[in-house]
Design a binder for these strands. Structure first.
Length: 721
DNA sequence: TGCTTATGATTTTTT
DNA sequence: ATCATAAGCA
């Protein structure tokens, strides 16, 4: 970095960037320039010739953070940061395993299971083991397995403790481990654990990597779990340099294994650690910072930090007590329009909520107000059912022994291979230690299935064989396209005329585009298909930069790391935020408070907090008290907002009937009817059309009647008016 | 076999 | 209210 750039760093930042100390822990408050310090540190190492890019590894949690870091480095260093390893824990471990798959005892084409696949597999194993999945919920087994792995424990290492439940969990873990190993499947935690074990048990390999990566840098250190920390320590060894950046006040992921203790342990595990605090905030107004500081001061378990700013006090934090959630939403829309008139662009405004369920009412209000918005998070593109179906075809064609994929698509779209047949395949496969694919082929060859099942299954096998044949030398994009058409998957979703069905078709088209645009790495060790499949399970791909002028909506969790001129935090009610499920222990409440702290510190200029006195949740009207966090913010920072005409229950609920808001595109072929339309039936009275299928004489519609429930009616005979 | 209806549970999320 | 999964029926 140039000396010019150094001048723009404050003393603490500068100290962190060019410290000679081998181990550095940077406690970086919100908005204190944490990413910048990380990037400048790397630039400094390279430009002072302390390290070549080859000797540096930088680890992040999300692909987004990794990409941003790489981008900034490119800018700063002016040379492509060649040889530099920047990536997520999982991405780097994956890279390692692909390179050393033999040493790691994995097949070359090992596949990655995402947590969906993991659950599916556990369910299947429980069934095979004749376990009741009510007593032993697959979710819990999943948690058990991941937790054991995060603590480095293989099934064989665990001593049965005499408790029946634990022993069952352990036996599931055993089966799961065996199955994955036999079939070359690796779940997310396994990527790291396997990498850790391989390094630990191969001293020459470990020596090589320790020698290579003399400088290790970690972002969001407060989010590391036990395994990730162990992995870092292993790589660091005695001699390497470890630079960790984190903020204990922003630790909000303990519920998925993050160990805030890792920050506390750091200076014990690395005795000569220099701890540097970044407390000057460059983001928010003084008012917003004071609120954040006051709130977080209520937590006992802190390393202690006090953010300050040279900035102006800014405007007061607005506090609005809404009558109900509709009133809350309308209020927010009005305020946003006001801010927009003040010249603040829409993409500088964000609405943050504790739970995704809260977004619906807000969306409706934004639609009515003609305010464009974008929702972050939620269902990631590559994890949507229809996309995973398509990917399963791609996977099975290239790796016929991939059982999870086989199971997913053997009867999807429905082709007459039912439960009974699948059960037989499974049994046969598990008795003979075959993959479902090979089991199917053998069963067909032996003709040991009932005629009809034999037929339908052969057709499926033939379908896959055909696709395999014709795809041998096709481009990935072409492959995907023909898979979707030939398999009938596209057709299947096209049958569904509802809005959701149409969205799925669009998603499939988007997938085709994604495969067409995918640029395989020319240096890759695996095939483009394989690379693409790993890419989609490791990178959720939801970080397209949003340059569009849209209001940003997301959960408080996914807001971490972002900033906006204007922030609205909604649903500040006891029971919702802090959430009911997080009130059991003081530690949980403290995490909720940190979450609130994260939310507040996202705001640069204006912050508005809202709560509703009445809120309909899970079909019931709830009356929550204002959040206790509101009381923890000093009154003088808050300004209560009153609305001139207090909205009544009816005026605050202007769109209770959704039917008017369905798009007009859902016209049913040649019937003059459309989805969402209200119709009258001679016998069942009035109702709303909620679905339709077929055309001409076989056209049917599904109607939700006001009094008789939902019914499918053949249009020809229904006599609707 | 596969569609329809009934039942149950519902924080947060990356990889 | 809404969604997913499971049992039940055509």
């Amino acid at each position: 970095m140039s000396d010019h750039a150094l001048n723009h760093l404050n003393p603490s930042q500068q100290e962190a960037v060019n410290s000679d100390c081998p181990h550095i822990l940077v406690l970086a408050g919100a908005g204190s320039g944490k990413t910048r310090v990380l990037v400048e540190r790397i630039a400094w190492l390279v430009q002072k010739n302390l390290a070549s890019p080859m000797e540096i590894m930088a680890v992040t949690f999300t692909n987004k953070a990794a990409k941003e870091m790489l981008g900034r480095l490119d800018n700063l260093l002016n040379i492509p940061a060649k040889g530099l390893w920047v990536g997520t824990f999982h991405g780097l471990a994956h890279r390692f395993l692909r390179q050393h798959y033999e040493t790691a005892d994995l097949p070359q084409g090992f596949q990655i299971l995402d947590s969906d696949d993991q659950i599916r597999l556990i369910k299947r194993l429980e069934k095979e083991m004749n376990l009741d999945d009510e007593r032993f919920p697959p979710k819990q087994a999943q948690w058990f397995i991941n937790n054991q792995k995060e603590n480095g424990r293989r099934a064989a290492h665990i001593q049965p403790n005499g408790e029946y439940f634990t022993e069952v969990m352990l036996s599931i873990y055993q089966q799961y481990e065996t199955f994955c190993q036999r079939n070359g499947l690796v779940d997310f935690t396994e990527l790291l654990l396997r990498c850790h074990e391989t390094l630990r048990d191969n001293s020459d390999l470990l020596a090589h990597y320790r020698k290579r990566f003399r400088y290790l840098l970690v972002d969001e250190f407060q989010d590391t779990n036990t395994l990730q920390y162990a992995w870092l320590r292993l790589l660091a060894g005695e001699d390497n340099h470890l630079f960790a950046v984190g903020d204990d006040d922003q630790s909000i992921y303990s519920w998925r294994g993050a160990k805030i203790e890792n920050i506390h342990r750091f200076s014990q595990d690395f005795p000569d650690t220099q701890t540097i605090r970044l407390e000057q905030n460059y983001r928010s107004t003084e008012t917003i910072l004071s609120a954040a500081n006051a709130l977080i001061a209520n937590n006992d378990q802190r390393m202690g930090k006090q953010l300050w700013t040279k900035g102006n006090p800014g405007t007061a934090i607005e506090n609005y007590a809404a009558f109900n959630e509709f009133d809350e939403a309308i209020f927010i829309c009005e305020r946003m329009i006001q801010y927009q008139n003040q010249g603040i662009p829409l993409n500088e405004m964000a609405i943050l909520y504790r739970a995704n369920a809260l977004s619906r009412v807000l969306e409706e209000a934004l639609n009515r107000a003609n305010l464009p918005y974008r929702i972050y998070g939620g269902h990631k593109f590559f994890s949507r059912a229809e996309i995973k179906d398509a990917l399963a075809y791609l996977r099975l064609i290239n790796f016929p022994n991939d059982d999870p994929s086989f199971e997913r698509i053997v009867n999807h779209p429905p082709r007459g291979v039912g439960h009974a047949t699948i059960d037989k395949i499974r049994d046969f496969a598990s008795i003979n230690q075959l993959s479902l694919w090979n089991a199917s082929k053998q069963l067909i060859a032996e003709k040991s299935l009932p005629g009809r099942a034999n037929n339908t299954l052969s057709q499926f096998v033939q379908l896959i064989e055909d696709l395999k044949e014709q795809n041998m030398d096709q481009e990935l994009g072409e492959q995907t396209k023909s898979i979707l058409l030939v398999s009938g998957l596209m057709d299947h979703f096209q049958q569904d005329r509802s809005e959701k069905g149409q969205a799925k078709v669009e998603n499939l088209h988007e997938l085709i585009t994604a495969t067409q645009q995918f640029a395989p790495d020319p240096n890759s060790l695996v095939s483009p298909v394989d690379e693409f499949l790993a890419h989609v399970t490791l990178d959720t791909g939801d970080d397209e930069p949003s340059t569009e002028q849209c209001i940003q909506m997301m959960t408080l969790h996914s807001a971490k790391g972002l900033e906006f001129d204007v922030v609205f935090i909604v649903g500040l009610e006891d029971g919702l935020f802090p959430h009911n499920m997080c009130l059991e222990t003081p530690a949980q409440l403290e995490e909720e408070r940190r979450l609130c702290y994260v939310g507040i510190t996202r705001a640069k200029k204006h912050l508005t907090l809202t709560h509703a006195e009445q809120r309909r949740m899970n079909g019931r009207d709830m009356f929550h008290r204002p959040s206790r966090f509101l009381k923890e913010i000093p009154q003088y920072l808050l300004q209560d907002i009153r609305v001139r005409n207090r909205r009544t229950a009816s005026s605050a609920k202007p769109y209770a009937h959704r039917s008017n808001y369905l798009p007009s595109t859902s016209v049913i072929d040649n019937t003059g009817l459309q989805l969402g339309q209200t119709v009258n039936h001679p016998k069942f009275g009035s109702g709303t059309i909620i679905n339709a299928e077929g055309s001409g004489e076989s056209a049917r519609v599904q109607v939700q009647f006001d009094q008789y429930g939902t019914k499918w009616l053949v249009l020809q005979y229904a006599n609707l008016s």
